[in-house]
Design a protein around this nucleic acid. Structure first.
Lengths: 201, 201
DNA sequence: GACTATACGGAGAGGCTCTCCGTTTCGCCA
DNA sequence: TGGCGAAACGGAGAGCCTCTCCGTATAGTC
């Protein structure tokens, strides 16, 4: 089973090698200087021509999407871990939102293209976002069933809030207590007053 | 009184005319296409050379700051109106935050440079932001005195929240009810439960 | 080892920001 | 009203970026 066609050639090894190497270099590049650096510079540092880079990844968004795929899988693992470990649905939701927030700090400037992708259909990043929203909805519905979250909140809104919070973080960092404050603000926005429930820390 | 020096020449009329005309064109340009358009295109449309534009406004941020000054004054008027008209400090704060949010939609893409300006000292936009934060603090302190706002919130955090909300709005607009939802989320973040107080609409 | 599909590389087109300097225009004063 | 010097103009162009095109090199197959 599985041989698509007898005439199909095995893909060239240099292609795969180049792709992998470009990704390595881009990962380091974006991590250190943010996602707005020059793609030609990445190609040069990877020792390939610009044409090669653009053939593998037709634009910055595509390159970014490929880089995020690995991290995306890590986030899926965290999601499963939370599901497994956390009995309290409110805390589970809080942990999931926090995990997404951390994921969004992988590269400086990451929130921007994700926001842009949300408005477009044909973006590889849009699929990632949609997955996040779906998962958020699952955690949220559980929390709402248990009365831990306001019933009028939706997963999409929570995702947007986390995204926006990640976006302001770089400005907030100038003031050391702002990140916590924003986190608290956001949390007290969706969370119901925990009168009958234990402290959430 | 006030003649700085006897040798001071009156500024050239073409200079002032050009400056005003560039601002007119830029206002329209930014309003229609967002703030990321080509500055050279603005110069061309204004009928001046690029050199002239850049002599008046050394970079995009300076041009933006000049454009915002007029609108800034309008916001100051609204602030004064709120102070004059609104007795309930909680509602006053809510109205002020809403006014800032509207102000931030003047041009598509405006939140981004403002966030960037927050991290820098030498930006003309930073002064504007600082003014907003100060005013927010005033409304907030009054609201906190009256028990309408949580005591742990700070003006800076509220400003950042409004800024972030304005930033996600373009993505949120894809879904028509998101803006309201985000607004509600944010508001229930800083507002204390209004048990003893009238409904806020 | 030859043959062909496949991928590579880099020159370069087109666009943007911003600068520099020769030329023009304006305000002042006689 | 005319001349003069300061002030402003304008556009060529340097430098950087994204992305394309096509002649050349190379991997896989037989």
């Amino acid at each position: 089973m599985g041989a698509a066609g007898a005439g199909a050639r095995r893909p060239r090894t240099d292609k795969q090698r180049n792709r992998a190497h470009i990704l390595e270099v881009a990962e380091e590049f974006f991590s250190e200087r943010g996602i707005t650096g020059s793609l030609d510079a990445i190609a040069k540092q990877a020792g390939v021509g610009p044409g090669t880079l653009y053939r593998h990844f037709p634009n910055r968004e595509a390159l970014l999407a490929a880089l995020l795929q690995t991290r995306d899988e890590e986030l899926v693992s965290r999601r499963d871990a939370i599901r497994r470990e956390e009995a309290d649905s409110g805390i589970a939701l809080a942990r999931w939102l926090e995990a997404m927030g951390e994921w969004l700090t992988a590269f400086d400037g990451l929130p921007e293209p994700l926001r842009a992708a949300l408005s477009e259909e044909t973006s590889p990043l849009a699929i990632t976002c949609q997955g996040f929203i779906t998962t958020t909805d699952e955690f949220l519905h559980a929390a709402q069933r248990d009365g831990a979250a306001h019933p009028w909140v939706r997963g999409r809104d929570l995702f947007l809030t986390v995204l926006a919070t990640a976006w302001v973080r770089s400005a907030a960092l100038a003031d050391e207590s702002s990140p916590q404050a924003l986190h608290a603000l956001m949390q007290s926005g969706w969370m119901t007053p925990r009168t009958e429930r234990g402290p959430l820390t």
